[in-house]
Design a binder for these strands. Structure first.
Length: 494
RNA sequence: CGGGGUGUAGCGCAGUCCGGUUAGCGCAUCUGGUUUGGGACCAGAGGGUCCCAGGUUCGAAUCCUGGUACCCCGACCA
């Protein structure tokens, strides 16, 4: 296998090449034969599957139910909400025909021109329109509300430029779509779900995030307010990792979804939508990985503990195997995901390197010495340290250690992130920090889209969010000098 | 869509400028043996429409024309 990652020089141009290399070599995913799409390999999918399972549990615990809506959306649905169509029109895959046939000139298979659809179908880039067209039939009275649905699905966005996990033409996600009686209830729902995402990112992925509002420029097409969780990658760029939108009555009006309220009057319903995608995989990889490969938080690692035997000959292998299985059984009894790697054709050093590349949190190595002394070698992926410990109580020790590793990975990411939030008050400082340090820049902004655009044009930095817990503070916009009432976070982003 | 780069064995590449035996190297694979506490070694074997099409030539991986795919940078991107 001879895997060697290119040197990780953070915040250099080759960071994305390094990331790409890592994703492929760690066996997570690769580019597919279809432009801009990716193949998620079993190891990568196992991580996603775990994320899916945990998030799904969190959605259900907050009263949501899963449902499924069509992949294809009639073109006409799309144009009902003006800003929505404007936001997505440029990146839609369109189905125009429904049949192929043999080329009469013998050049293989061609699209049958006779089989043109009367109305083209859009491959969903997001499902608001088809879902609201459906909700219309489900809602007549306040007694039908709220509707709290979530969909796990794939969507397609024909982006001009793609990156594994971060921006692929097709990606997996979940999208929650809820309908409510009142504005307050919808806002509360949108807030609740962004906090679910924050909790998931921090407690499961060990990725600290800032919760905040998007500026109007960055808002979802069709939303009145977009809440976001913003994470920081190791090269100092921000990654929008999940969003929750308060849609107001925009889609209800576009699809004419009214309900009879408690006074018997017809009103439009209030809506939210919220989603996270396989982009979270990119966040997980870019937030923690080092030059030896992935560093996975124990809670999401498909393999939490791997046991590698060191032996000479069949007899020693058999002896090691017996002890390894005993320890593995003990770990499994505590619900720990453990793998015994007794492959006979690979040497220990190779296996060590391989599991480091794959980010396995804890590695045990068991050899003759250990069998004689009742010890075992224990290596941590997060700190790359190893020690020889007693086999006595090893199972409990590891159970506690996994929690410690989880906490340590988060702390490391949090310390880094906090060290990369820089307050600046002048334009010169802003440019200086942006070019030399990166990360989030906390600065005053006059609140206008024009200024945000001008800053973006000048520096490529955008407002990542207006933090939800931002303290009111009087100041002057770093670009125009006009008055501002709170700081916002700027960064370059993926 | 612009700028740059690359298509040669499963993977990574050399060879291309300056055309010339049977297209080569490393890794991986298979066989046999020795190994095994940080990416093993020896011996042998298998594996190729040199991205595609056309052209020039006695002869093309190499030169010419056209096409195509992928990668990086930009533009673009709730």
């Amino acid at each position: 296998m001879a895997v060697e990652l290119k040197d990780l020089t953070k915040s250099e141009d080759n960071y994305s090449q390094w990331y790409n290399d890592l994703v492929v070599k760690a066996g997570l995913a690769e580019n597919s034969a279809v432009r801009g799409c990716m193949v998620i390999k079993p190891y990568g999918y196992a991580i996603w599957e775990k994320m899916h399972e945990v998030l799904d549990g969190m959605f259900k615990a907050t009263g949501h139910q899963n449902a499924y809506f069509p992949l294809f959306i009639p073109k006409s649905f799309f144009s009902r909400e003006a800003s929505h169509v404007e936001g997505f029109a440029k990146e839609c895959a369109v189905v125009t025909h429904y049949r192929l046939k043999n080329d009469p000139e013998g050049k293989g298979i061609v699209v049958d021109p006779e089989a043109r659809l009367e109305e083209e179908l859009i491959v969903r880039p997001t499902s608001e329109t088809i879902i609201w067209n459906t909700y219309k039939n489900w809602i007549t009275s306040y007694r039908d509300l709220p509707i709290l649905c979530n969909q796990w699905a794939n969507v397609v966005r024909w982006e001009m430029r793609t990156r594994l996990f971060l921006r692929t033409a097709e990606f997996l996600w979940q999208e929650g779509h809820t309908a409510h009686e009142t504005k307050e209830e919808a806002i509360e729902e949108a807030t609740k779900m962004i906090n679910v995402y924050k909790q998931f990112a921090e407690e499961w992925m060990c990725v600290p995030v800032v919760v905040g509002h998007k500026s109007p420029n960055e808002r979802f097409a069709g939303a009145e307010d977009t809440l976001t969780i913003e994470a920081l990658m190791q090269d100092g760029k921000a990654l929008q990792s999940g969003t929750s939108h308060f849609l107001g009555q925009n889609f209800a009006k576009a699809f004419d979804v009214k309900y009879a309220n408690r006074e018997g009057k017809l009103e439009y319903v209030w809506a939210t939508s919220w989603g996270v995608s396989t982009r979270l995989m990119g966040a997980l990889i870019m937030a923690h990985s080092d030059n030896n490969g992935l560093v996975l938080p124990p809670k999401l690692a498909p393999i939490q503990v791997v046991i590698v035997p060191i032996y000479k000959g069949e007899e020693q292998l058999a002896a090691a195997r017996a002890k390894m299985n005993e320890i593995a059984d003990g770990l499994k009894a505590l619900g720990i995901r453990v793998k015994v790697d007794d492959r006979d054709n690979l040497r220990p050093g190779f296996k060590f390197a391989e599991y480091e590349l794959k980010g396995v949190p804890v590695r045990l190595a068991l050899g003759q010495r250990d069998l004689q002394n009742g010890t075992i070698e224990l290596a941590r992926r997060d700190t790359l340290t190893k020690e020889t410990v007693s086999q006595e109580g090893i199972v409990e020790h590891i159970a506690a250690l996994l929690d410690e590793i989880q906490a340590n990975i988060f702390k490391k990411a949090l310390d880094y992130r906090n060290s990369m939030i820089t307050k600046v008050d002048t334009w010169d400082e802003f440019v200086e920090v942006l070019n030399n340090k990166g990360g989030f820049i906390s600065a005053h902004w006059d609140g206008t889209p024009e200024t945000e655009q001008a800053i973006k044009d000048a520096t490529k930095a955008t407002i990542r969010c207006i933090p939800i817990d931002a303290e009111p503070e009087e100041g002057k916009c770093i670009f125009t000098g006009k008055p501002s009432h709170c700081r916002v976070l700027f960064a370059k982003s993926y």
